[in-house]
Design a protein around this nucleic acid. Structure first.
Length: 132
RNA sequence: UCAGACGGCUGGGCGGCCGCGGCCGUUUCGGCGGUCGAGGAAAGUCCGGGCUCCACGACGACAUGGCGGCGGGUAACGCCCGCCGGGGGCGACCCCAGGGAAAGCGCCACAGAAAGCAAACCGCCUCUCUUCAUGAGAGGUAAGGGUGAAAGGGUGCGGUAAGAGCGCACCGCGUCGGCGGCGACGUCGACGGCACGGCAAGCCCCGCCAGGAGCAAGACCGAAUAGGGAUUCCGCGCCGGCGCAAGCCGGUAGGGCCGUCGUUGGCCUGAGGCGUCCGGGUUGGUCGCGAGAACCGUCCCGCAAGGGCCGGUCCAGAGGAAUGGUCGCCGCAUCCGGCUCCAGGGUUCGCCCUGGAUCGGGUGGCACAGAACCCGGCUUAUAGGCCGUCUGAUCCG
RNA sequence: GCGCCCUUAGCUCAACCGGAUAGAGCAUCCGCCUUCUAAGCGGACGGUUGCAGGUUCGAGUCCUGCAGGGCGCG
């Protein structure tokens, strides 16, 4: 894998969100992060954002989405896996969460999702090298 | 210096007196004091949202309305930014509803031989027959003429009986492939050898989007009147239980609703229901109602639209509706006069004419226009003034 | 606050699926008829199709934005 800039695209279609919801998910602080390996051989990373009515009215939900978008813009290039779709879901504390804490939430969720998906992939893929 | 292109800002200022609306304080309930008080379009209501209520089981298809190059921004948009393609301009720059016409239907008036599928009016050429001249027939052509908005590629060379993509070059068109780009698309090469006209702001097809209503939404408190009358239309089937009966209860057929249809499912009704008109009552209050997609500033990301972090600020809200009037000074516009200065011209050397600066006075004004639940856009109206970037021409260095 | 319609000669109205000089009636003016007037007959005048753009070869007609007027609902 080269360190060439990974292309990040926005997730927009409903079926993509539903597919991501069926894959791995991890809740940290004010956000829930879902991740799905599309397994279609393209290194593209796609991100979607969701905030339900539970978070608040339209203005609050949109604010939550904007903050998550800014957080993803900052964190994802270092921690995202090529070929994955990510969905960030706002929990009730998201709009008020302090900015550094919010970044930590997203970071740690991404890291734990990466290890979890590796553990799932290992039994089936025998060719992968054994853990160090 | 002149002409022009693009973007942004501003929307007279200060003071005195009188007056208006909200809130707060005070009050001897008369007032008094303090504080805040319209816009960039508050407008048109042309789009998009928030908010509120109503509706909403699922799946598929359809209908209706809109949108239409590509990518991005956004809560969203028909908006904005960037890019592509086409058109205009010397240029800065501007304009474009800019998908599909080889899915189908329709239309293309007049003119013209012919208007969508190939044909041939005048011509041109060959052959045959004929004649004094010429004319007739058969065939080949589409270069030229003429009509039109548009006539089946264009220009040139070759070629030919005359001609023709018949052949070749370039351009255009189409197909295929390579390369670049997220993409619209660009570019290069090969092939085809002209077939495929225009209109979709005509129907339509394709893709995408979309529940309905609106602050008179809606919530609460209070008051009053009444449990009415007239009338159109549709309907009142069956079974069981209780009861002497009138009747009551339950079920079912049936009917209605969920935009339409289908599958499946649900709800209401099941003997009354809907509509129209007349009559009667109320015409109160509070909330909704402004601390928000708000404004200002630093930093970060982005070409930009825009987004995020942090810090700061509080900024109209009432009802058919408040910001006005007047005076003084200044600014701007305009008119008259003075004559001090400057420039140009004329001159009978007295001065005169034109323009500018300056002084005094007068006049008239100082645009468009007034929040009504709130935001984002668009569109339209708008005297004058200011700033920035850029282009062309001319002159000087 | 919503929804819909209209605008053509001085007046009242036409104009087909977009097709070329935008037509009628009344009014006005001129002439004929009549002694004169009215009526009648013949003729003439009269139009930025509300405005500004766009689509099209071509717009009164189609589309967009304005302006003016009218109607309905709450």
């Amino acid at each position: 894998m080269t360190d060439a800039p990974i292309k990040i695209e926005r997730l927009r279609k409903r079926p993509d969100f539903l597919a991501a919801a069926r894959a791995f998910s991890c809740a940290r602080g004010a956000v829930v992060v879902q991740a799905r390996d599309r397994a279609d051989d393209t290194p593209l990373v796609r991100v979607g954002f969701t905030a339900t009515r539970k978070v608040g009215g339209a203005v609050v939900r949109n604010r939550a989405k904007r903050r998550m978008r800014a957080a993803a813009h900052e964190v994802l290039p270092g921690l995202a896996r090529p070929g994955f779709d990510y969905v960030l879901i706002a929990r009730s504390g998201a709009p008020a969460r302090a900015w550094p804490r919010l970044l930590d939430d997203v970071k740690s969720a991404l890291i734990s999702l990466a290890t979890e998906s590796d553990r799932q992939a290992r039994p089936s893929a025998t060719a992968t090298p054994p853990p160090a």
